[in-house]
């Protein structure tokens, strides 16, 4: 079932179009990647979902109902540009922001204390924000985002500013939030974390959606019959062993093993490739090269941009 649906959402600022009829669907309890180069319109879309700004055309449904003001209480948002009041005490500030999300003072204190214990940062409660390091502030900010137990969480570049240990901590928390029933929209430029965490993605470029779907399926769809072959003894040139139409993309070696990347024509199968090299090589491993999200991102965006240059 869809937690969030955007239908042909368009947003313009004067002459500039920030979003052009973008549609997407986020299923419940999934982690959804919102991808795109800088300035593509991701933040505008996130702001529309948060009702910070409204769409010019189209609509956004949350649990199949059009967005309305009290939906802010079930959304948690960690913006990319984030910060806290520097002169205010950590605890007081967290209570204030939790109350703005609709929690009572009593509930806010109770839940915040719980989170502060969980992160082992109780000692920070009475400190001013300016006394904390950047990473510490990010932790407090994360707690503030989730303290009202939102059904929908929106993280914009959540890992920036964290050291690797805290990145792990945060990733585990995000996965636990999902297990506990939250739906998560996740915007990042870190494609490795997209592959690791996201179920579905949408790729936006220059206000337009250029790709969406399940991460695994997308990667499978973009499989272009490229294989990686690792082998030992080598008599003769690998290139001469390959049938015509088979393309040797790279061939390198370390001390013991050679590693070759080979792309074969669509109509051929992996068996043909194996049969042609098996008699000559001692094969250590043979596998499909599934393109990374990084590669797909770059090739998709470049293709679209090249087209638009050609058109103009």
């Amino acid at each position: 079932m869809a937690m969030l649906t955007a239908k042909k959402v368009t947003k313009r600022f004067g002459e500039f179009t920030a979003l052009n009829a973008v549609s997407l669907q986020v299923s419940e309890q999934s982690i959804f990647g919102l991808l795109g180069p800088n300035g593509a319109g991701k933040t505008t879309l996130i702001r529309i979902i948060n009702q910070i700004t409204g769409p010019d055309e189209g609509e956004v449904l949350l649990n199949d109902k059009p967005l309305k003001p009290d939906h802010t209480a079930i959304i948690g948002y960690l913006p990319e540009e984030r910060g806290l009041y520097k002169k205010m005490k950590v605890g007081e500030q967290a209570i204030y922001l939790a109350q703005l999300k609709g929690l009572s003072h009593f509930d806010a204190v109770k839940r915040l204390k719980h989170w502060f214990e969980k992160f082992e940062i109780e000692a920070w409660w009475g400190k001013k924000v300016e006394e904390l390091s950047k990473g510490m502030q990010q932790k407090v900010q994360f707690i503030i985002t989730v303290v009202h137990e939102p059904k929908l969480l929106i993280f914009d570049e959540p890992f920036s500013g964290f050291d690797p240990i805290n990145v792990n901590l945060l990733r585990d928390e995000i996965l636990e939030l999902r297990r506990n029933g939250s739906t998560i929209i996740f915007s990042t430029h870190n494609m490795a974390s997209v592959e690791e965490l996201c179920d579905d993605i949408v790729l936006i470029n220059k206000a337009n959606k250029i790709l969406d779907g399940n991460v695994k399926q997308i990667r499978q769809q973009h499989f272009d019959n490229t294989y990686n072959l690792r082998y030992r003894n080598h008599d003769g040139d690998l290139k001469t062993l390959l049938a015509p139409g088979f393309e040797l993309i790279s061939n390198s070696s370390d001390d013991e093993l050679y590693s070759a990347t080979i792309r074969i024509p669509k109509e051929s199968g992996s068996m043909e490739l194996l049969q042609s090299v098996l008699p000559h090589l001692s094969i250590a491993s043979f596998e499909e090269v599934i393109p990374s999200m990084n590669d797909i991102f770059i090739s998709k965006v470049n293709a679209v941009n090249a087209n638009s240059i050609l058109e103009s």
Binding site: N50, Q51, P79, G83, Y85, K101
Partner: peptide, 18 residues
Amino acid sequence: IEEKTNRIVEVIVSSVKP
């Protein structure tokens, strides 16, 4: 200006109207 340079404003306007 403080809220803007602190970057806290976007957190707040996700809870209340500007």
